[in-house]
Simulated assay, not measured.
Amino acid sequence: MPYNNQPKPDDRSDNAEKLQSMLQNTEENIRAAEESLKFTDSETQRQQIEEKNERRKESIESFRSEIKDEANNTQG
């Protein structure tokens, strides 16, 4: 039996929307983590939350850059 599996075409039509959704979810996660800092006495846990939020902030910048790229690609 021949192998007829074809790759799906690259559909980028909703990439900007997906990126925007991921950005908003990440912002919500940052707020929730900052709220949880109020309830922890563990310095280790506090440090882990702060480090994770820093990585989240870096991700947000990447999302924004990708959203701009997608917007530029759809305008051309």
Rank of each mutant, 00 (worst) to 15 (best):
N5T: 10
N5M: 14
N5A: 14
N5V: 04
Q6G: 00
Q6V: 03
Q6C: 02
Q6M: 07
Q6D: 03
P7T: 08
P7H: 10
P7F: 10
P7M: 13
K8Q: 12
K8D: 06
K8E: 13
P9H: 06
P9I: 04
P9R: 09
P9Y: 05
D10N: 09
D10W: 01
D10H: 04
D11Y: 06
D11I: 03
D11G: 01
R12Y: 08
R12L: 07
R12D: 09
S13W: 10
S13L: 11
S13D: 13
S13K: 14
D14E: 13
D14I: 04
D14A: 13
D14W: 06
N15E: 15
A16K: 14
E17F: 05
E17N: 09
K18M: 12
L19N: 02
L19P: 01
L19F: 15
L19R: 04
Q20L: 14
Q20S: 15
Q20V: 05
Q20I: 08
S21R: 13
S21W: 15
S21M: 14
S21N: 11
S21A: 15
M22S: 02
M22Y: 04
M22T: 01
L23S: 12
L23I: 09
L23N: 13
Q24C: 01
Q24W: 07
Q24A: 14
N25I: 03
N25K: 14
T26F: 01
E27M: 11
E27T: 03
E27Y: 00
E27F: 01
E27C: 03
E27D: 13
E28K: 14
N29W: 13
N29H: 11
N29F: 10
N29R: 12
I30M: 09
I30K: 02
I30G: 05
I30P: 04
R31T: 12
A32H: 03
A32C: 01
A32Q: 12
A33I: 00
E34R: 12
E35K: 11
E35D: 12
E35A: 08
E35V: 00
E35G: 04
S36K: 10
S36G: 00
L37G: 03
L37H: 11
L37S: 05
L37W: 07
L37P: 02
L37A: 09
K38Y: 15
K38G: 10
F39Y: 14
F39Q: 12
F39A: 07
F39C: 02
T40E: 09
T40Y: 07
T40D: 03
T40P: 04
T40W: 13
D41Y: 03
D41C: 01
D41I: 08
D41S: 12
D41H: 06
S42A: 09
S42K: 02
S42T: 01
S42R: 04
S42L: 06
E43S: 07
E43C: 00
E43T: 08
E43A: 07
E43M: 05
T44N: 03
T44Q: 03
T44I: 04
Q45H: 08
Q45F: 08
R46P: 00
Q47T: 06
Q48C: 01
Q48A: 11
Q48S: 06
Q48R: 12
I49G: 10
I49W: 07
I49Y: 08
I49T: 12
